[in-house]
Amino acid sequence: MATRTAGKPSTRRVEKRRSTRERLIIATMIGIPTLLVVWLVWLPAIASFLLSFTRWNGFKLSSIEWVGVQNYKDITTIYPPFWPAIQHNVIWLVFLFVFPTILGMLLAVVLDHEMWGSRFYQTAFYLPVVLSMALVGFIWQLFYSTDQGLINEVFGSKVDWYGDPSVNLWAVLVATAWRHTGYIMLIYLAGLKGIDASLREAAAVDGASEVKTFFHVIFPVMRPINLIVLVIVVIESLRAFDLVWIINKGRNGLELISALVSQNVIGEATRYGFGSALAVIMMIISSVFITIYLRIVFREERR
């Protein structure tokens, strides 16, 4: 701050005095959040990393036992739910990206036209978003229940929607999509409303069709919104947890890394070392996406 005027000795003293106070303020403003971040993010992360090389039941610190990479070895070799969980997380990401995101965008584009009843549709599509995931799981249980569920009742089928491991992941993804679509729709709708009307007019004057206008004019202008949507999808799929936890605690076809971590450390099981190793694996996967995201954001800023 003071560097540019550093050449003038008269103002230097003033600068110096001000900068002591400023420095103090800056130090506090940076210090407190830094402390919080270190306390709430870095220390637990480092502790998890260290614990992942131990066996500990969480009771006495003296009972922590160093086991090296045993936990990682066990996870990848003799822990059956691990590889399915990785696979399910990837499916989750791809599915969220392909179906609800595109559907949400489409709905937003359609609802952007001031047609009759668009307010009603907006509310209807957005409604699931305000529900907690736990409630979403419960609502869909009413549809999916084998013996008493709506779907089997109406179609006379006998599909075990939540229990059959070959269909339950997809059943859960549909329930997630039901909520996710409205979310994307609203974000996109807000973005579309913010677009300068003259752009559309200019495109119309040039004789561009509706579809062409969207892909060649609107979509590129929406770049910041698209980026937000992309990030939301990635975050949502990595933190996917509540729904499967409500349904069957992330077992039997619904394994997700987050659920496995919880199974091992939350609840009665107290495999802190093993659970930490799973959490570290999850952290590594997340950091790949976070790095990509940050790179995009910084490149954007540099422009």
Binding site: Y144, S145, T146, D147, Q148, K158, D160, W161, Y162, G163, D164, P165, N168, N252
Partner: peptide, 14 residues
């Protein structure tokens, strides 16, 4: 059959 998706309450009901 299809026990993996059924709660004990549902089984009791049947």
């Amino acid at each position: 059959e299809n026990a993996l998706g059924r709660t004990w309450q549902e089984a009791a009901t049947s």
